[in-house]
Design a binder for these strands. Structure first.
Lengths: 135, 135
DNA sequence: CGGCATCCTAAGGGATACTG
DNA sequence: CAGTATCCCTTAGGATGCCG
């Protein structure tokens, strides 16, 4: 997605009306997904929801993340105002990451989704087995 | 991520304890993101939340999706038991997609996140401007 | 310790052409 | 109309090495 405004005419086909079904909600979801739909962002926010953590702690706790991706993810979240980055001028260096108020509000909004996943994982697993058996 | 169970020893470094910070919630989020973190899934669920839609309607309403990706996304959602696919034996063919009960419950869980995005988009935009100006 | 910079691959996903 | 199959390209993201 290389443009954020998409000023295209959208070309509705005359007879087959259907104008603007729910443009706004869709756009907002696009926004959200572009920002948090990657592999690690939400994970980091979740962990920082518990308490402040330093770089190495995050890396240890997020099993499988590379140093590079952790750094990038943190920079993204910082840029979006979701976390703060505090560098302590000591040797060896120590950098703490913490949720901002905005970040904490996001966490609240994510919670239902986490709960949903926890509760419905079995259903999904069953659905998959069914589907795979048929086809 | 090629294994879902990750039976690794996790190698905690003796002195620096930190055992299992919040393994479960993290895993659930991983699960969720692997399933819905792609470019289109949540968008489709959102649209089907309003009403039943047929293939061509979805394609028209999701601006920018390719036929291939719409098909793949729908198959995924169907496999996970989030939507149903109904083929009407007519010519030209007509295929309807609809949320299942599970899909509707997901939609409810997603709603807070959509609201959050809508409400905080300005804050994020401002944070970005600030960040970019400094650095 | 907490990063960059570089390289490289695997996967996501678009474009196009063809089919029942 | 609602797909499938093929090709191709861009990107996410891992591995490695260096540096303050």
């Amino acid at each position: 997605m290389e443009d954020g405004t998409s000023p295209q005419p959208r070309h509705i086909e005359g007879t087959d009306v259907l104008p603007r079904p729910d443009e706004t909600a869709t756009c907002e979801l696009r926004d959200l997904l572009d920002r948090l739909g990657d592999k690690w962002s939400l994970l980091v926010v979740e962990l920082l929801g518990h308490r402040l953590l330093r770089f190495s702690e995050l890396q240890r706790q997020i099993d499988g993340i590379s140093q590079r991706m952790l750094t990038r993810t943190l920079r993204h979240l910082e840029r979006d105002g979701l976390i703060t980055r505090t560098v302590h001028p000591v040797v060896p260096p120590r950098v703490d990451y913490e949720l901002t108020a905005l970040g904490r509000s996001l966490l609240v909004a994510v919670e239902p989704l986490v709960s949903w996943t926890r509760e419905n994982r079995p259903s999904i697993a069953r659905a998959r087995v069914d589907y795979d058996r048929q086809e």
